[in-house]
Simulated scan of single mutants.
Amino acid sequence: MIHLSVNVNKVATLRNSRGGNHPDLLAISELILKAGAHGITVHPREDERHIKKQDVFDLKVFLQKYNEKNKTRIEYNIEGEPSARFLDLVLEAKPDQATLVPVTPGEITSDHGFDLKKEKTSLTEYIKKIQAAGIRVSIFMETDPENLQLVRSTGADRVEFYTGPYAHAFDESPEKGKKIFETFRLAAEFLEKEKIGINAGHDLDQYNLPLFASLPGLQEVSIGHRLMSYALEVGIQKAVEVYLQAISKAG
Results as ranks from 00 to 15, higher is better:
residue 97 Q to S: 13
residue 184 F to N: 05
residue 170 F to W: 00
residue 194 E to L: 04
residue 41 T to G: 01
residue 246 A to P: 00
residue 25 L to Y: 04
residue 77 N to Q: 09
residue 13 T to N: 06
residue 82 P to R: 04
residue 172 E to V: 14
residue 10 K to I: 11
residue 25 L to A: 03
residue 240 V to Y: 10
residue 180 I to W: 00
residue 78 I to R: 01
residue 78 I to M: 08
residue 224 G to W: 03
residue 50 H to Q: 13
residue 84 A to M: 13
residue 166 Y to E: 10
residue 71 K to W: 07
residue 102 P to N: 01
residue 89 L to A: 03
residue 122 S to W: 12
residue 22 H to V: 15
residue 138 S to Q: 09
residue 154 T to M: 03
residue 37 A to T: 08
residue 151 V to I: 00
residue 199 N to C: 14
residue 136 R to T: 14
residue 31 L to H: 14
residue 210 P to I: 00
residue 30 E to V: 05
residue 127 I to E: 00
residue 141 M to F: 09
residue 201 G to Y: 10
residue 225 H to T: 07
residue 242 V to M: 07
residue 212 F to E: 06
residue 102 P to L: 12
residue 20 G to S: 06
residue 118 K to G: 08
residue 71 K to H: 02
residue 67 N to F: 01
residue 79 E to F: 09
residue 215 L to I: 00
residue 12 A to L: 10
residue 60 K to R: 07
residue 163 T to C: 07
residue 152 R to Q: 15
residue 67 N to P: 06
residue 1 M to A: 14
residue 165 P to A: 09
residue 100 L to Y: 06
residue 99 T to G: 00
residue 45 R to E: 07
residue 47 D to Y: 05
residue 206 Q to M: 13
residue 113 G to T: 07
residue 24 D to W: 04
residue 6 V to D: 05
residue 72 T to L: 11
residue 50 H to W: 11
residue 62 F to L: 03
residue 123 L to Q: 10
residue 63 L to K: 08
residue 166 Y to I: 00
residue 196 I to Q: 02
residue 31 L to P: 13
residue 53 K to H: 05
residue 49 R to F: 06
residue 94 K to W: 08
residue 224 G to Y: 05
residue 220 E to W: 07
residue 47 D to K: 03
residue 200 A to F: 03
residue 175 E to S: 04
residue 231 A to I: 05
residue 41 T to F: 02
residue 239 A to F: 01
residue 198 I to R: 00
residue 70 N to E: 12
residue 152 R to E: 15
residue 89 L to T: 09
residue 220 E to V: 12
residue 43 H to Y: 11
residue 155 G to M: 04
residue 122 S to Y: 14
residue 85 R to T: 11
residue 210 P to N: 08
residue 188 A to Y: 06
residue 214 S to H: 06
residue 111 D to M: 15
residue 146 E to K: 13
residue 185 R to K: 15
residue 213 A to F: 04
residue 237 Q to S: 10
residue 193 K to Q: 15
residue 42 V to H: 09
residue 38 H to Q: 07
residue 17 S to Y: 03
residue 77 N to R: 04
residue 183 T to H: 14
residue 14 L to D: 11
residue 249 K to H: 11
residue 36 G to F: 00
residue 20 G to E: 07
residue 64 Q to G: 13
residue 163 T to A: 04
residue 16 N to Q: 02
residue 101 V to N: 05
residue 177 G to S: 06
residue 165 P to G: 02
residue 124 T to P: 11
residue 88 D to E: 12
residue 69 K to H: 02
residue 194 E to Y: 08
residue 191 L to S: 15
residue 71 K to Y: 08
residue 229 S to F: 10
residue 182 E to Q: 14
residue 169 A to P: 06
residue 55 D to K: 04
residue 65 K to Q: 14
residue 39 G to K: 01
residue 221 V to Q: 04
residue 200 A to Q: 09
residue 167 A to Y: 08
residue 14 L to T: 13
residue 108 I to F: 13
residue 229 S to I: 01
residue 82 P to V: 07
residue 138 S to M: 05
residue 104 T to P: 13
residue 95 P to W: 06
residue 53 K to S: 14
residue 74 I to S: 01
residue 99 T to I: 07
residue 83 S to K: 06
residue 162 Y to L: 05
residue 115 D to Y: 04
residue 157 D to V: 04
residue 92 E to K: 13
residue 27 A to C: 09
residue 64 Q to V: 15
residue 139 I to P: 01
residue 201 G to H: 09
residue 236 I to V: 11
residue 96 D to H: 08
residue 154 T to W: 08
residue 223 I to E: 10
residue 136 R to S: 12
residue 235 G to W: 06
residue 219 Q to G: 14
residue 115 D to E: 06
residue 153 S to K: 12
